[in-house]
C-alpha cells in the first residue's frame, strides 16, 4: 500500500468504475428483483402482484417447465461436447511431439466467430432441401436412412441447436485443461509408470486428481455459460418447432420483448440467476466431496 494514499485518491480511482458497474450491472439486478413482483406491460400503470409471478411460473406455466427441461438437455450436450471433448483432445495433445501450437490455434478458431455467423453456417449444414453438409456426410458413409431436416424435426432439434454451442467453445476448455495437464509433474507420472500403472490408471489416479481444481473451474464456467446460452437457439429456431427447442433464456426474451410482459420476464430472469447460483453450489459440493473421499 502506498504511504501517501489519501481518501480522496481512493475515491477518485474507485468511483468511476463503480459508477459504470452500478449502472450496467447492480442497479439492473435490483430492478429485476423489484419488477419480478409486479405486473407491467411497459405502458399502463405497474401493478404489485406479490409472489403471483413466481407461483405462475412454478405451478401454472407448462411452457416454462418445457423450457427448463430443454435447458437441462442443452446443458448436458454442451457439457459432454465441451468438457468431455476438451479432456479427450487435451489428453491426446500432450502425446503429440510436434505441432501442438498449431492444433491449439486451429481448435480454438470457432471461438472467434460470431454466433450469427455460426447460426448461418449450421442452418445450411443441417438443411435437407437442398441437402446440407450433415446429410451429405451421412450419405457418404452409407447412412442415408438417417437423413432429415435436423432443425424442423421435433426429436432432433434440441440436440441440433446445442451442438453448435458445444463446438464453439470446446477449444477454450481444451486450452485450459491442456495447460493444467502439462503442469502435472513429470516425476509423479514417471514414478507411477515404474510401479506398472497402465495408461488408464495413470490418468485416473495421477493426472485427473492433479487437475481437479481446474476441472472444477471449467465445469463451473461451462455450466453457467450453457445455462445462459441464448444466441444460437434464438437465431436457429427461436424455440421452435412448437416449444421443442425453447430454452428458459429464449422464453424469457420472448416474454419480455415480444409479449412485453416485463414483470413476468423479470421473474424468469431472476430464476436464471438462481439456477446459475444453485448449479455453482452443486458443482463445488459434488466435486469437492469426491476429492475428500
Amino acid at each position: 500500500m502506498l504511504p501517501h494514499r489519501s481518501r480522496t485518491a481512493v475515491l477518485v480511482f474507485l468511483l468511476p468504475p463503480l459508477l459504470l458497474y452500478g449502472i450496467a450491472v447492480l442497479v439492473p439486478i435490483v430492478q429485476s428483483l423489484v419488477l419480478s413482483f409486479f405486473s407491467w406491460d411497459g405502458i399502463t400503470a405497474m401493478e404489485f402482484v406479490g409472489l403471483d409471478n413466481y407461483v405462475r411460473m412454478l405451478t401454472r406455466d407448462d411452457i416454462f417447465w418445457t423450457a427448463f427441461v430443454n435447458s437441462l438437455g442443452y446443458l448436458a450436450i454442451c457439457l459432454i461436447l465441451q468438457l468431455g471433448g476438451a479432456l479427450v483432445v487435451a489428453s491426446l495433445l500432450i502425446g503429440l511431439r510436434r505441432g501442438r501450437e498449431l492444433v491449439k490455434t486451429l481448435y480454438l478458431l470457432p471461438a472467434v466467430i460470431s454466433t450469427v455467423a455460426i447460426a448461418f453456417l449450421f442452418q445450411r449444414m443441417y438443411a435437407l432441401e437442398p441437402v446440407g453438409l450433415f446429410n451429405q456426410a451421412l450419405a457418404a458413409i452409407g447412412l442415408d436412412g438417417l437423413q432429415r431436416a435436423w432443425l424442423s424435426d421435433v426429436g432432433t432439434v434440441l440436440a441440433a441447436v446445442s451442438i453448435p454451442e458445444g463446438w464453439r467453445f470446446t477449444g477454450l476448455y481444451m486450452l485450459i485443461i491442456y495447460a493444467a495437464l502439462i503442469a502435472v509433474p513429470a516425476e509423479l507420472e514417471e514414478a507411477a509408470r515404474l510401479d506398472g500403472a497402465s495408461r488408464w490408471q495413470l490418468f485416473t489416479k495421477i493426472r485427473f486428481p492433479y487437475i481437479r481444481p481446474v476441472w472444477i473451474t471449467t465445469t463451473i464456467m461451462a455450466t453457467t455459460y450453457a445455462l445462459r446460452g441464448f444466441d444460437i437457439p434464438y437465431l436457429l429456431t427461436n424455440g421452435g418447432p412448437g416449444q421443442a427447442s425453447e430454452l428458459v433464456t429464449t422464453y424469457m426474451y420472448k416474454t419480455a420483448f415480444s409479449h412485453t410482459d416485463y414483470g413476468y420476464a423479470s421473474t424468469i430472469s431472476v430464476f436464471i440467476v438462481i439456477e446459475c447460483l444453485v448449479a455453482v453450489g452443486l458443482i463445488i459440493m459434488l466435486l469437492r466431496r469426491r476429492a475428500d473421499a
Partner: peptide, 16 residues
Amino acid sequence: VGIIVPVQIALVPLFI
C-alpha cells in the same frame, strides 16, 4: 457478482 450473474438479468431493466 458480475462474473457469476448472467447478462439476461439486465436486459429488461436496461431497456426500460
